[in-house]
Structures are given as structure tokens and as C-alpha cells.
Simulated assay, not measured.
Amino acid sequence: MSKLTHFNEEGRAQMVDVSGKPETVRTAIAQSSIEVNQTIYEHISRHKVKKGDVLSVAQVAGIMAAKKTWDIIPMCHPIPLKGINISFEWEDGKEGHRQLKITASVKTIGNTGVEMEALTAVSAAALTVYDMCKAIDKGMVIGPTYLVEKTGGVSSKDFKR
């Protein structure tokens, strides 16, 4: 069993010291989704949501959230991100619903990974869709949210779901 690195010898939270780790190219891909009813799908698709272009705003929100992950997740390091991409894809959901799949790809060159940045990006994008469409219907369902892939680093193996 591996040791939990976010706890010190006293069992209290700590930010992990990554200063001794070499800088490598690190990437992460995360996904989330939001299930919406047909009315919301049509409003988003036809750009009829009163608050604006939902997917454009959600994309910017995801990018901003990735850049600020260290500000909202206590033990995350501030990381100079080199690239962030958010993409959207509609899929059929349960009867009368559509599923918006949200994918974030994040990249850096550094001594710690960007998994949390990718996960934060898709979460913020999904929450933004909810916020912009809640006046139409509050029954939207967010999730699941998960890490798809990570690469980089020297001490841990790459991950792919």
C-alpha cells in the first residue's frame, strides 16, 4: 500500500514538496457530462439561452478553472499550464434527454502532474452549463467526472482508463 503524501508525520495536511522532482512534460485528460432535457438541448444548440452562448461560456469557465485550480483545491501547487483544451460532444441520453460529454486536455512542463487541473476544468464547465440553463429546468444531472489519461513524471506510471 502506498503512503498518502498529503499528510505529515503528525497526520495533518501538508502540501507535498515536489522541489526534488525533475521537470517533465505532463498531460492529463478528464471527462464529465451533464444530462439535459430536450428543451435545454434545443436552446443550447440554437443559441437561444438568454445568458448567452452556453458552450462558449462553459469553455472559457473550464479554462479559467484549470488555471486557478491551486486557488480552490487546498493542496494543489500553482502550475504554469502550457495548454488547455475543452471540447464538447452531444450523445443520446435516456428517453427525452441528451448527454453533453465534456473533455479537458491539460499540458505543462513541470515537476507535478495536471490531473486536478483537468478534473477541475470539466467540473467547472459542467457547472457553468447548469448555471446558464437552470432557469429552463433544474433537473439536469452532472457526472460522472473522471480522469481518462495522464502522462509524464518519472516515479509513477502513466494512467489510461
Rank of each mutant, 00 (worst) to 15 (best):
S2Y: 09
K3A: 07
K3V: 14
L4T: 05
E9P: 00
G11I: 04
R12N: 10
A13R: 09
A13P: 13
M15H: 01
V16E: 02
D17K: 01
G20H: 05
P22L: 13
T24F: 10
R26I: 10
A28R: 00
I29L: 01
A30Q: 00
A30G: 04
A30R: 01
Q31L: 02
Q31H: 03
S32T: 03
I34T: 01
H47W: 05
V49R: 05
K51Y: 06
L55C: 07
S56N: 12
M64E: 09
A65V: 13
A66F: 14
K67W: 11
I72A: 07
I73H: 01
I73M: 12
P74H: 12
H77K: 06
I79G: 07
L81R: 11
L81F: 10
K82Y: 11
K82L: 12
G83W: 09
N85A: 11
S87P: 01
S87C: 04
E89Q: 14
D92E: 15
E95L: 05
R98M: 11
R98K: 15
R98S: 03
Q99V: 15
K101Q: 04
K101M: 06
A104V: 06
S105L: 05
V106A: 00
K107R: 15
I109C: 10
I109A: 09
I109H: 12
G110C: 13
G110A: 12
N111M: 04
N111P: 05
N111A: 14
N111L: 13
N111R: 14
G113C: 10
V114G: 02
M116L: 15
E117T: 11
V122I: 08
A124W: 00
A125P: 02
T128V: 12
M132T: 09
K134D: 06
A135K: 07
I136L: 15
D137P: 07
K138R: 15
G139M: 08
V141Y: 08
G143P: 09
G143Y: 08
P144Q: 04
P144S: 03
T145K: 05
L147S: 07
L147C: 09
V148W: 00
V148C: 01
K150A: 02
S155C: 09
S156V: 06
S156W: 01
S156T: 10
R161W: 00
R161P: 12
